[in-house]
């Protein structure tokens, strides 16, 4: 999609989007396959989630049942924020260690596919960790019982929350990885920008725990911010990573010459 806006890929937009999606799927499967072979991300992120969970349990075990519904959502999404920053940093450090991101950028791969694939992988890993956190919170805090009682809603909520985080985070983690930037900047950028999505997630979680009707409304709003984050992220990915070609003339000519 960004190709159609910025670059000289002078083909029909629909076929272009299909190319991007197919390539994104290939890249995502490739990442997951590598992950399945060494489990590095899954194990470190899961371990980190456990550590955060234990820290939360120790810090808030004395909390009364009445105040727990106010605290549990915060615990869940803070944990997502921490684990998410770690996961994103690691995913792109790995790309940078072997410089594979550059190989993808010079290959005939839609840039937006790279974005979508990385966001998807981040989302999957983050989702796994968050479900673990949810499980742990349910065991530790009685007020978190609705998580277990309404598993479908919980799953939808956690998925949407993680998606929001991945959508915003992938753009900036990739940008930092390609500019040989400093990873400390990732947290600096990530937390302020993901705050609105996390706030929506927080509100939705609270209404879920309290059994409010408004849960679906909040979930819808969270989904809307996700869509916004993904559209903007996909749109900005190529300009942020490689910049735009200064001139576009000659593009159509080249496209015609090409078969």
């Amino acid at each position: 999609m960004s190709e159609a806006l910025w670059g000289p890929g002078a083909r029909a937009k629909t076929s272009l989007d299909m190319v991007a999606l197919r390539q994104a799927w290939l890249l995502a499967v490739n990442d997951l396959r590598q992950e399945a072979r060494d489990l590095e991300l899954i194990l470190t992120s899961t371990f980190f989630s456990l550590v955060v969970l234990i820290m939360l349990g120790m810090s808030f075990s004395a909390l009364g049942v009445s105040s727990q519904p106010l605290a549990v959502p915060g615990m869940l999404w803070l944990s997502v924020a921490f684990v998410g920053a770690l996961t994103l940093g690691r995913i792109f450090t790995r790309e940078r260690e072997f410089d594979t991101l550059r190989a993808l950028l010079v290959a005939p791969v839609e840039r937006v596919s790279i974005y979508l694939a990385k966001a998807f992988v981040t989302m999957v890993i983050l989702l796994g960790c968050s479900l673990l956190t949810v499980l742990g919170l349910t065991l530790l805090f009685p007020a978190a019982q609705p998580f277990a009682d309404r598993p479908l809603e919980t799953f939808a909520l956690v998925t949407m929350g993680c998606t929001a985080y991945a959508g915003v985070g992938t753009l900036f983690a990739a940008g930092l990885a390609s500019s040989s930037g400093k990873n400390v900047l990732l947290s600096v950028i990530l937390y302020p920008l993901t705050m609105p999505s996390l706030l929506f997630a927080l509100v939705a979680t609270r209404s879920l725990l309290e059994g409010h009707e408004s849960f679906t409304t909040y979930l819808g709003q969270l989904t809307a911010t996700n869509v916004l984050a993904f559209v903007v992220g996909a749109w900005l990915f190529e300009p942020v990573l490689v910049g735009v070609p200064q001139k576009r003339r000659g593009a159509a000519r080249a496209a015609r010459r090409r078969r």
């Binding site: 190709e3 670059g7 000289p8 890929g9 002078a10 190319v19 490739n30 396959r33 590598q34 072979r37 060494d38 072997f98 410089d99 594979t100 550059r102 190989a103 010079v106 290959a107 005939p108 791969v109 839609e110 070609p245 200064q246 001139k247 576009r248 003339r249 000659g250 593009a251 000519r253 080249a254 496209a255 010459r257 090409r258």
Partner: peptide, 25 residues
């Protein structure tokens, strides 16, 4: 003949970097 570096152009050239750029796994 083109100043752009779109998908069509990138399909026509290849780069071998001094870093290997391969997936170790």
């Amino acid at each position: 003949g083109s100043t752009g570096v779109g998908l069509a152009e990138r399909a026509r050239f290849a780069v071998v970097s001094h870093t290997a750029q391969t997936y170790p796994r």
